[in-house]
Computed example of a mutant assay.
Amino acid sequence: MNRHDKKLDQAARAAWMYYVAGQTQHEIAEALGVSRQVAQRLVALAIDSGLISVNISHPVGRCMELSARLSERYGLSLCQVVPSQGMESAGLNRAVAVAGAEVMAQFIRDEQPLIIGVGSGRSLKAAIDELPDFERPQHSCVSLIGAIAADGSCTRYDVPLWMAEKTQGRYFILPAPLFADSEQDRTLWCNHRIYRTVNEKASQADVTFIGIGTIEYQCPLHKDGFISAEEVERLSAANAVAEMLGHFIDSAGRRVASELDQRLTSVNLRQQPEKPVIALAGGAEKHRAIRAALLGRWINGLVTDEECAQALLAD
C-alpha cells in the first residue's frame, strides 16, 4: 500500500469515528495518535476525496483484510468488520449498529417478498433503529424468540416488531414466553395452533438476523430476569460461553444441555444453515461467545468490529 492509500485509510477511519461514532476531533486525535489539527485535516480530506456521501464509501483496508480472513477461517458467506480503534463502548456499538443496518438494508431493498427471521438483543435493536423507512409491505418479519414476560407484557426482546414498522411489512409474533413455567407449560404453549404456524414460517426464513449473548453474572439474560444467578453458575460450570435465542453453546460450539431446555420455547437453531443467518455482535469481551457460534457453524454471516475480529483470529 502506497503513502496516498495509507492517508486515505486514515482519513476514512477518522471520518467513520466523526460521523458514525460521534466522537470529537480531540478524541479522534488521541485514538489515532495525531494532533487535533491533523485530525481536522483528515476529516476534511475524507470530504474532499469523495469518501463521504450518505455513508462512508471508502473501505478501510485493515477491516477488509480482517473480513477476508474471518470469512476464510470460519466459512462465512458474509462478513463486515467496522473500525473500532480507540473507540469507547458507545461509539463501537453504534458503529456495529450502522454497519448492521447497511447489511439488513441490502436484503430489505429486494422487491420480491421475503420472510425475515429476527432474534433478540440490544445490537439487533440498535441496528434496526439505524434503518431508514422502507415501503416493503410484501415482506414478513417473524419472531424467533418468545417475547412475552411473566405478567403478559411484551419485553424489550420483541425486536421483530421494530423491523416490521421500518419495512411496513407483516409481523408474526411467537406467542410464548422465552422460558415457560414448566415442561408441561411449554408443551401447552408450543402445541398451540398459532405457535406452530409461526414456527413453521420461521423455518422458511429467507434471511435471519440474530444476536449473540454471553453467559456470565449480569449478562442480559440474567440482568433482565430470564435466568437466575444459580442458573448462570450451572451453565458456566458446564462450559457454556454463548447464548443464541435462549440456546446455550460451549466454547467448542456444541449445545450445552440444561434443565432450561425443557422450558425453552424459541425456534430451533440449525448448524450449517443453507440460507443467510447473520449475527450482529461486537466488543472484545464478546469474542469467546462469537467464536463459539462460529466454531459450531451456527451462523454464516457476521457484523463485528476490528478488535473483536483480531481476537477471533488470534487463537
Rank of each mutant, 00 (worst) to 15 (best):
E274Q: 12
S266T: 12
L131F: 00
I215H: 00
A229T: 07
A14T: 12
E102M: 11
V34C: 15
D133C: 10
R263Q: 14
L294S: 07
P175K: 02
S49F: 02
E216I: 09
A242E: 04
K275M: 01
Q310T: 11
Q40E: 13
A12V: 11
Q80S: 05
T24Y: 07
V207W: 08
R94K: 11
V142G: 02
E88K: 12
G22E: 14
V103M: 11
G211M: 10
D129G: 06
R263N: 10
Y74V: 11
I148G: 09
R109E: 13
E183H: 09
L280E: 04
R69E: 08
P59N: 00
D206W: 12
R41F: 07
P113Q: 14
L78G: 03
V103T: 00
D133V: 12
P59K: 05
I290S: 06
L32F: 07
A39R: 09
E307L: 01
T155G: 13
E65A: 12
M244H: 05
V277M: 10
E243V: 04
Q310G: 15
Q80G: 03
A44G: 01
V96P: 00
I47M: 09
A311V: 09
I278A: 03
A229E: 14
I194P: 01
L161F: 08
S120Q: 12
A238V: 08
T208S: 08
G213V: 00
G283D: 08
A238N: 11
L188Y: 14
G100V: 03
E72A: 15
Q25I: 08
S251D: 15
I227D: 14
E274F: 10
F107P: 10
W162R: 12
G253I: 02
N268P: 13
A289I: 01
I215N: 00
I148N: 04
R193G: 10
W189C: 02
V241K: 05
G50T: 05
V34H: 03
Q262I: 03
A240N: 07
I47D: 12
A176R: 05
D129I: 07
G253P: 07
W16A: 10
V38E: 10
A176I: 02
A252H: 09
A149D: 13
E135L: 05
Q262L: 06
A205D: 05
L294A: 07
P113I: 02
G253V: 00
N191K: 13
P59E: 07
A279F: 08
E102C: 07
S120L: 01
A242Y: 02
S203N: 07
A292G: 06
V60N: 04
P220I: 04
V142N: 02
D133T: 13
A97R: 05
G169Q: 01
A292Y: 10
A309G: 02
M104S: 02
I173A: 14
E230K: 11
W298D: 09
D110K: 00
Y217C: 08
K125E: 12
A293W: 06
